[in-house]
Amino acid sequence: MSTIPDQQGGTRRRRRIHSDEFKANAVASCMQPGMSMAAVAMVQGVNANLLRRWVRDAEMNSATTVVSATTTEMMVNASREARKSCVRAFNTVRGAQ
């Protein structure tokens, strides 16, 4: 005796694919004051855990962008300071001659 119902050919459930725009709109809805993630998930027709993953990914991407911009700015400032230091050393050596 089998407890698994027979599946008709072609009625197989498939994983849904959501566009980046759909995900961005859902994440933006979660960021609104007073909106719960569960309520947004129900309205959008997705699982709350999936929506939470999209929010986490969006937060990670924005944090990476901020860190990347800060690191680049720090590198530019460091290279400016290094160049100034080299110019001072060159001028000092040149003035000593």
Rank of each mutant, 00 (worst) to 15 (best):
R53P: 00
A38G: 01
S36F: 14
M31G: 02
N47E: 15
M35S: 08
V66K: 15
A63F: 05
V43Q: 11
N25C: 08
A69S: 11
V67C: 08
A58Y: 05
Q44M: 15
T64Y: 12
V76M: 13
R52A: 13
R52W: 09
A69F: 00
V46K: 04
M60P: 00
A39V: 10
T70A: 12
S36N: 10
A48C: 10
S36Q: 11
R53V: 11
A28K: 14
T70M: 04
S68H: 04
T64Q: 14
M37H: 04
M75T: 08
S68I: 03
A26C: 13
A48R: 13
R53S: 11
S29M: 14
V40L: 06
N49V: 04
S62Y: 01
N49R: 08
N47M: 09
G34R: 14
M31W: 01
D57Y: 04
E59K: 10
T72G: 04
N61K: 12
W54G: 00
E73Y: 07
A58S: 15
S68P: 02
A63G: 04
A41Q: 05
D57K: 12
E73S: 15
A41H: 04
L50Q: 13
Q44A: 15
V66T: 12
A63S: 09
T72R: 13
M35Q: 14
D57E: 14
M74H: 13
V40T: 07
E73C: 13
R56C: 02
N47I: 07
T64I: 11
G45T: 03
T65F: 06
A28I: 05
T65R: 15
